[in-house]
Design a protein around this nucleic acid. Sequence first.
DNA 1: GATCACATGTAAGAAGTTACATGATTCT
DNA 2: AGAATCATGTAACTTCTTACATGTGATC
Lengths: 182, 182
Amino acid sequence: MPSESILAYLLLGLLHEQPLSGYDLRKIVLSTPMAQFSDSPGAIYPALRRLVKNGLIAPERAARGGRRRALFAPSRKGREAFAAWLHREPTRDEVMKRWDVLMLRLAFMTGILRPAEIARFFDRLQLELDGYLAELEAFLDRQGDQMPASARLAFESGLTGYRAQVAWARASRQRLRKRRKP
Amino acid sequence: MPSESILAYLLLGLLHEQPLSGYDLRKIVLSTPMAQFSDSPGAIYPALRRLVKNGLIAPERAARGGRRRALFAPSRKGREAFAAWLHREPTRDEVMKRWDVLMLRLAFMTGILRPAEIARFFDRLQLELDGYLAELEAFLDRQGDQMPASARLAFESGLTGYRAQVAWARASRQRLRKRRKP
DNA sequence: GATCACATGTAAGAAGTTACATGATTCT
DNA sequence: AGAATCATGTAACTTCTTACATGTGATC
């Protein structure tokens, strides 16, 4: 079962709400601030064709009178693959290098995962976040003195960012709990 | 003049302090938390060869008795190219999608750029950061209500992160000013 | 002498980038 | 009709990933 690219999952997720064309998808990706993903036709159209080839989406003949537009909708297999992707537990590696992907997964969870599963995502996230933050702080203790001034500033940018995310995760988790028993 | 890949600039920067082998570079990248960059041999060795081909680094014959190790050091052209890279002004696009690259540049500045130039980097950074944050907040005002709950959380993670970076940038800029007149 | 860590490399393939190409439809 | 925009696509190139290959010096 070939794992899809991030962009492919993004497209697959967008298609869950309604059938869309490649052009629609490009516009959405372009106008959505949370996606630093590619809106170039050279990325989107090949990704769509891969999804079709793998049976995760299927073209819908749009009888719409206007221009030719190939609308795509996820297949059952596509929905399953997407749900499986959302179910993946956040790893330390993702926390370190692919925070954007974690947030992309989170963004799509409502309506597909149950609240308890979203809570589990947050639990895992907090665990790995805390662990990584501890690593960073240990590194600062060991190496902080020897770092050039600007390197230290850059490092502190990272620290600051992760500390903010820890606070965000705690607050979000809290809010989830409240919403479930209002 | 072909612009190098990010990884190539990272290697070029590391070589500024002392001649290193590909293996050394891999170990440094692997053990340094601020780099989410690749430490795989399939990325590093080709990148080194590109740098050699472009005349930015040159091998040093290490007469060291031990194992064969190809040590590389930056050429004059390499130092110039690296300084030019550090001099690039932060763009909105980089603030949005390549924060890691901006921090990589910052990390290497001490000793190569003058304090006033580093201050300028921060000024530009604050400008683009403020601008982008305003964009995000405007987006939230417009679309916030219609966002699914988890999408909203993911969006807020971004907001939180950028707000933290704004504070970090302000504090860092402040510290720079102090350090210059102690 | 066998084995392990060091050190460098390559081959195949995935995926994205830039830039261009091509029609169709709507607008003026 | 001519221009602009919609909509899809392709070609060439770059870079990274994964996985394997190779040899050498150190270690037991």
